[in-house]
Design a protein around this nucleic acid. Structure first.
Lengths: 242, 242
DNA sequence: GGGGAGAGATGCCGC
DNA sequence: GCGGCATTTCTCCCC
């Protein structure tokens, strides 16, 4: 037992990837404060000081620390994992009542993930196929910088009216309409023109957002983020996987 | 080896908590699409079907699945962990090139976390100490329901002018000001009154948000979320932990 | 289940 | 560093 603890302590200093299966209770103090009574959890300590505590169910870590320093202390037969980030004034104390299992490994991974179907991809699609917005839409610029935010796609119609396009990859909500409104108002102000059209490009919209959009004279165009691996779904189907 | 795989397969069916240390490559197709080339990752499979893939650094899982069904397939000497959520049309394929380690455990945890210092706690504080907003502020209701959102604290001043208070536990940004504006406008409309005051209660504000707040005649009041464990910090300090 | 909004949000990019 | 904003956001609450 003592020997195992020494190994874990050493691993904490040398930046290994550590997984601990524990029964523990947890106190956090930092941006907020929290307490979690005794239960079984998996603790993941990464090579960059990241610490994640996971319960046996649920998507998100129940507690976590970023870029923290960890120390394992055995005091009066009580095992405690203390984690701190001085810069952010964050402290996490894990009282470990039982150590179910542990693994220590040095892992290597320099790869970055490639993602498709993002909001940026939607904007790219609209630049390539402006008719998705309207027959006479001419895109002018992408990711236009404003102090009040970035305009996804800026363009104009055949009468040279400015058109602001805001893309949402899934649900157009109140916040999206408000965002669009901010850009339109700002453009009217900075360019000194009255007519600036606003378009919200997204697959679907909430009912209230639709109403708000209408109230302010903006329009919704149904556009979905592009996907190229749909083949992947089809292949799954063909293989009779479900 | 064969025997280990059988154990993992069995664990997948019986809802154990499983941790795999792997060298793998990952394809995802669902709400978006992604590909992640070969590298070392820790895979966490929970008892409710949650699957998380973690790289050796970073806070967030690089890939994940919720409420999914998993199957481990050995085909042509290639080990593949397939995960799917039919309802959401999500598919995750993990080609496992090497299995560094694995653990299988049944974990029990029914505890819920207790958190303090949330936005709700700020609103409670303001109800109790309305003078934090202004000398003559009288709170009337909390979490007031509007179709356009929930008003954190609604009240009035000594002249019976309505006051909308929006709380932010940290940074007041453009979105917060816009949110406040939405509530104020909606109240003016629904109550048929011209004067509705807007207050943003938060510890600090971004410069643009400050400007926007001023433009629309709203005010900022400096309030922080209450913390009760500050003792915890102090204790740490006293112990000379840093 | 949809709608709205907070979160100890996180992460990314741009200035 | 701050600012603005997307996220395979996630989660909770309410209607």
């Amino acid at each position: 037992m003592e020997e195992e603890l020494l190994k874990i302590k050493e691993a904490l200093n040398k930046s290994y990837s550590i997984v601990l299966g524990t029964n523990c209770e947890i106190t956090y103090s930092g941006r907020a404060e929290s307490f979690l009574p005794k239960g079984d959890r998996i603790i993941l300590i990464k090579q960059d000081g990241t610490l994640l505590v996971h319960q046996p169910t649920g998507n998100n870590p129940i507690n976590y620390m970023k870029e923290a320093e960890h120390s394992l202390i055995l005091d009066n037969n009580e095992l405690c994992l203390q984690s701190k980030n001085i810069k952010n004034k964050e402290f996490l104390d894990i009282k470990i009542h039982k150590l179910h299992f542990h693994t220590i490994h040095s892992l290597e991974d320099a790869e970055k993930i490639q993602i498709q179907g993002t909001e940026k991809d939607m904007a790219d699609l609209i630049i390539k196929q402006p008719e998705l917005i309207s027959k006479d839409f001419k895109p002018v610029s992408q990711e236009e910088q404003t102090k009040y935010g970035f305009i996804d796609v800026l363009g104009h119609d055949k009468d040279n009216n400015l058109i602001v396009v805001e893309c949402k990859r899934y649900n157009g909500d109140l916040a999206a309409v408000t965002q669009l409104r901010r850009y339109v108002e700002k453009l009217q102000e900075s360019k000194g023109v009255n007519v600036v059209k606003g378009i919200l490009a997204c697959p679907k919209m909430s009912s209230n957002a639709k109403k708000m959009l209408k109230d302010w004279g903006f329009k919704h165009v149904s556009v979905s983020p592009p996907k190229y691996l749909e083949r992947y779904d089809n292949k799954q189907k063909k293989l009779g996987e479900y």
